[in-house]
Design a protein around this nucleic acid. Sequence first.
DNA 1: GGAAAACAACCAAGCGCTTGCTTGTTTTTG
DNA 2: CAAAAACAAGCAAGCGCTTGGTTGTTTTCC
Lengths: 194, 194
Amino acid sequence: MTPPLFDPEKPRDRLLSAAARLFHRQGFAATTVREIGAEVGILSGSLFHHVKSKEDMLFAVMERVISAMHDALRAELASASDPQTRLRALISVELRYLHGPAADATGVLFHEWRALSEARRAVLLDGRSAYFALWQQVLTDAQTAGLTTLDPTMLRQFLHGALAWTSFWYKPGGALDLEALTDQALTLVLPPLR
Amino acid sequence: MTPPLFDPEKPRDRLLSAAARLFHRQGFAATTVREIGAEVGILSGSLFHHVKSKEDMLFAVMERVISAMHDALRAELASASDPQTRLRALISVELRYLHGPAADATGVLFHEWRALSEARRAVLLDGRSAYFALWQQVLTDAQTAGLTTLDPTMLRQFLHGALAWTSFWYKPGGALDLEALTDQALTLVLPPLR
DNA sequence: GGAAAACAACCAAGCGCTTGCTTGTTTTTG
DNA sequence: CAAAAACAAGCAAGCGCTTGGTTGTTTTCC
């Protein structure tokens, strides 16, 4: 369906994928370039042939997820017209990235944001705002349609937080599958009429 | 009202308070013992007179918040009987710790959990479960009272995530005060009847 | 009740080790 | 046979933590 975030054919991508895995598992600061090298089967020095610095890897990983999530959400919204379906798309994309094949990279984006230098954070913020602009529009439409009474901006923050935090407790492969989790999150935002 | 988390009279507490501030701002791994020493005005070596290791400080900070939050919530629940008021107490305590005077320590508990060794995480988990047991009961009662239709465990995870994530975007002192934020969060869980 | 012992708090110095990264050379590969 | 990818070796800086010793304040005890 969608191409994988990192192409296993390309050496640099293999490196970034390994870095994402380790950054996610241990955190950026606690991961050494020697560990990253070992993960892909090369010595630490060789790694700088593909990348300028350790922070470069963090930046590249985040950049990759940001544009991939944006593309995925835009594609999904393009084929959804009614407010409720669009609302579900928001949640679905977020949860699929957080718990699907791109889980490591997405986790790094969410939890290692502060490890990035301020200058590079500013660069990424552009792409990130574009993604959240989509959210804002969908949530505003949902409010107009009477699906929710909360202020769209507030709802965006709360919903995004609730979903992001699933990375701490939700384990795929258990009794609750991703589809069911998506439904539950939708119920949180969109309580049944009574 | 409640005693501060760290007593400025006690040298060890001053140290832990400074550590919490730095751990929160830069992350545990990215903070050096030399920085912590400088923050309280002593040399890095002297710091080990009060504490056995750098990780000890992280542990002590988290331990302090955990029991303080538990005490605060228990006290608040003791004087609240109806389900909705109790629900509000849950949110209120969480947000007051996240954005009040104990913000640094609470942020450390929330965001540096993985930096702690597994053995010590297990120790803290006991106190943490006690806190969440209070949540569980309040949310179950709320469901019984017909205030919400979501499964209490699910709601607990979503709500806690939404609140925890406020530390990334909510800045106290702005247009939205803590009381108003609490109301908004309550509205998320408890949509107006219609 | 006053000397002796203990203690809390810190400094100055530095040890052993790890860190991110560089350099020069060799191997692999299209 | 060149370009890409890796190795081997190591540097400078910084890391957590230890050591031995100096203060000033309590506590102990005959």
